[in-house]
Simulated scan of single mutants.
Amino acid sequence: MRTPSGKHIVSFDEDEIAFLNALNAILPAVPDFRLAVRRAVAEAVQVIPFDAFAVLRPDRGNDSLTMYSIGAPSGPFLAALRAEMEAAAGLAPGPESGVEVELVELPGTARAEHAAGVGSSHVCGPDDLPSFRCGIFAVAPRAFQRKHALLLTLVATWLRSYHAFSEAYRQMEEMSFTDPLTGCLNRRKFVEEAEREIERVRRYGYDLCLGIVDLDNLKQVNDSHGHPAGDALLRALGEAFARRLRKVDVFARYGGDEFVVLLPHTPIAGAVLALTRVLAAARELMAEREGGKLGFSASVGVSAFRKGDDLDGLLKRADDALYAAKKGGRGTVVVGE
Rank of each mutant, 00 (worst) to 15 (best):
N186L: 06
D127W: 06
F177S: 06
V250A: 01
D214I: 05
K247M: 11
L208W: 03
A229K: 01
L218Q: 02
L234R: 00
R187M: 11
Q220H: 09
A112M: 03
M172T: 15
D214S: 13
R202P: 01
I136R: 00
L218Y: 00
S131D: 14
W158L: 12
G256T: 10
A116V: 08
P141A: 13
N217D: 15
D231W: 07
A242F: 11
Q220Y: 04
E197Y: 05
L159Q: 03
L185F: 14
T157W: 04
D179Y: 07
V139Y: 00
G119C: 06
N186P: 11
S121Q: 14
F137G: 01
A138V: 06
L129F: 07
E199T: 13
Q220A: 15
Y206W: 10
D207I: 03
R188L: 11
I136L: 08
S176Y: 05
G125S: 09
A164W: 05
T157A: 12
G230N: 04
R146N: 11
G238N: 07
R146V: 15
A110G: 06
R235L: 11
A252I: 14
L210D: 02
R202V: 06
L233F: 04
T178F: 09
Q145L: 15
R244L: 10
F132E: 01
D179G: 12
A242G: 12
K247D: 14
G238M: 07
A194E: 03
H163Y: 15
G183F: 10
E192D: 15
L185H: 13
Y162P: 00
E173T: 09
H227W: 09
C184T: 15
W158N: 13
L154A: 13
G230E: 02
A236W: 03
A242I: 03
F165Q: 10
L152I: 05
S120G: 08
Q220R: 12
V155P: 00
S161L: 15
P180T: 11
E113M: 08
Q145W: 12
P126G: 08
G230M: 03
G238E: 06
C209F: 00
Y254C: 00
